[in-house]
Amino acid sequence: MTSRRGFCRKPRYRRYRLGRVNAAIDENHLDESPRGLTIMAVVGVFVGILSGMFGIGGGTIIVPALVWLGLTQRHAAATSMMAIVPTAISGVISYAVEGNVDWIAAALVFAGMFVGGQIGSWLLSKLPEIALRWAFVAFLVFVIINQAISNPSRDSHIDMHPIMALGLIAFGVIAGVLAGLLGIGGGAICVPALSIIFGASDLIARGTSLLAMFPNSITTSVANVRRHMVHVKAAVIIGVIAAITAPLGTWIAGAVTPRTGAIMFTVYLSALLVRSLFVAFKAMRRR
């Protein structure tokens, strides 16, 4: 009798596991047709320009595009993180050539973000999804209002001293918590804060933001590759094209006035807010 149970359960368990694996493969099939590759290339162009202009990683564009092309949310996010690595490096080089990167501030912010990210990831497993979505909406509204009323300067810089260094680390922890909790990149948080709170010029804020975010992108991507969550081909296509076009975005950022740049960033965040509101209301209707 015991033997019979063992022979009955084992095949069922195997069939169950195989079924789950096959289902995961079916729902995670990326469109690699000429149409799909063209879409990835176009996404890379836009991500590079926006990354250079605003000091962001571009995940808010990459992830929805990859989900649309067939990846699951988890695999799209992992692939996006890998694509951000060459994009951020290209953007940092473009800003650094013009002297618009504060290397010490970026290191301090990254140190704080590394700790805060772990806290945010822990909170992510405890809070309900609907609360997270509305927290993201509230965060975007706060940033948009601050961007709209701010008047960034192109000549200012971060005046580094011990209290400022502690403030940057503390801010990094908060930014890391928000990033881990809300599932967003560092740019939307770091750029406004570095400019409004810490006195960096609009260009230094963007260059420093890119520098602070890409070490975390590298370490996360290594872990994601080991877990087989990255579609390497898609990440390379998007990342390389974005890296090529990022200097164009950096040039645009330097060519426009600080106020115009702030308005453009506000428009980008407003578009992200509309999308986030749609997703939040959709999640509420499912409850």
Rank of each mutant, 00 (worst) to 15 (best):
G55L: 09
T87V: 13
I89N: 09
I39T: 15
I49K: 05
L50Y: 11
A78L: 02
V85F: 14
G48R: 00
H75A: 13
A77N: 14
V85R: 00
T60E: 13
Y95M: 04
V45G: 03
A88K: 06
S51C: 12
A41S: 15
V43F: 03
S80Y: 03
V43G: 06
T72M: 11
T38V: 12
A83R: 04
P64T: 11
S94Y: 00
I89K: 04
M53P: 04
I84S: 08
A65E: 03
I84K: 04
S80T: 10
L50V: 11
G57A: 07
F46V: 15
S94F: 08
G70I: 02
V42W: 06
V92N: 02
A77F: 06
S90N: 05
G59W: 09
A78W: 03
S90P: 07
G44T: 05
I49G: 00
V85N: 08
S51L: 02
V92R: 11
S51I: 09
A88F: 06
Q73P: 07
G36M: 10
M82P: 12
I61M: 14
L37I: 13
A83Y: 00
G57Q: 07
T60M: 13
G55V: 12
A65M: 14
G55M: 12
G57R: 06
M40E: 13
Q73D: 12
H75T: 12
G44H: 06
S90H: 05
T87S: 09
V42F: 15
A76Q: 00
I61C: 06
V67Q: 13
G52P: 03
W68A: 14
I56G: 03
P64V: 03
F54K: 03
G55K: 10
G70D: 09
G70Q: 12
S80L: 10
L50F: 13
F54N: 01
T38S: 15
M40V: 09
G55P: 09
I49Q: 11
H75S: 15
V92K: 10
A78M: 07
S80A: 14
G55T: 11
F46M: 14
I62E: 03
I84C: 08
Q73Y: 12
F54D: 01
V85L: 08
S51Y: 06
I89R: 10
T72G: 09
I56Q: 03
R74Y: 09
V42I: 15
G59Q: 01
T79Y: 06
I89W: 07
V92L: 00
V42N: 06
G57P: 06
P86S: 03
A83F: 01
V45F: 08
P86W: 04
V43H: 08
M40A: 06
V63L: 14
P86G: 12
P86C: 05
A83S: 15
G48H: 05
A76W: 11
A41P: 02
G48C: 04
A76N: 04
G57C: 03
V63E: 07
R74Q: 15
Y95Q: 04
V45A: 08
M82H: 07
P86F: 01
S94T: 08
G58C: 09
V43D: 08
M53T: 14
L71T: 04
H75I: 00
A76K: 00
L50S: 13
F54M: 02
G48Y: 02
S94L: 09
